[in-house]
Amino acid sequence: MIGVRSLEKEYHVGDHVVRALRGVTLDIAGGEFVTVVGPSGSGKSTFMHILGCLDRPTRGQYLLGGRDVSTLPHDELARVRNETIGFVFQGFNLLSRTSALENVELPLLYTRKGAVKAAERRDRARRALAAVGLTDREEHHPNQLSGGQQQRVAIARALVNEPSLLLADEPTGNLDTATSHEVMEVFAKLRAERGITIVVITHERDIAAWGTRTIDFKDGVVVSDEQHAPTMGSHRPVSA
């Protein structure tokens, strides 16, 4: 599914060069539930932006589904994001003054064939909301939803165009522990039911335990990468 080779990313701040990623090489197979951990500033978000085609590496190769996407032009990257990748952010990033349903419809406005027809958009958004358990909140606006519900709307939005890769940068960062685990449970369920590849960045060890593999970043390189048994639904890890 994903293969990165000697991935490097540099930022130029004045005449200073920040090396955010310093040669990352790894593969992620389809259906894996990867959690990315590491100290602040270690390059986790930078890595995920490149995986999500929001950014391009300074050096190195990125193969997505066998296709080298590291040098694609902007519009092509936008297409890849639309068709194969779903994003979930720490701050939810829902459009205010817009209903849950309309928020979920958003990616369907930018498909390869232009905007999907209104009726079909509505239909698919409803199904995505149902998949995250929010059937009864379609017309609610973000300010009428709890944090956990907002994040589930965001997940529905990430799902609506049926991507094969779901990327989440600290999706539980703004949520309390109980709600955090509810959100992680949604991810686990999606992976189990649809075989979606999921990459979640987190600071919390117990959230990382939901994955099947944990990658540890430090100063722009991977310091540990281990597979482990996931902690599913009924069998929750004890919080720290």
């Binding site: 929001l54 994001r81 990033n93 930018y110």
Partner: peptide, 16 residues
């Protein structure tokens, strides 16, 4: 600006 970023993240191109 944030909304623009989000729209781009879900697939909006420059011309959109």
């Amino acid at each position: 600006t944030k909304e623009i970023g989000l729209r781009m993240a879900v697939g909006a191109r420059g011309k959109d």
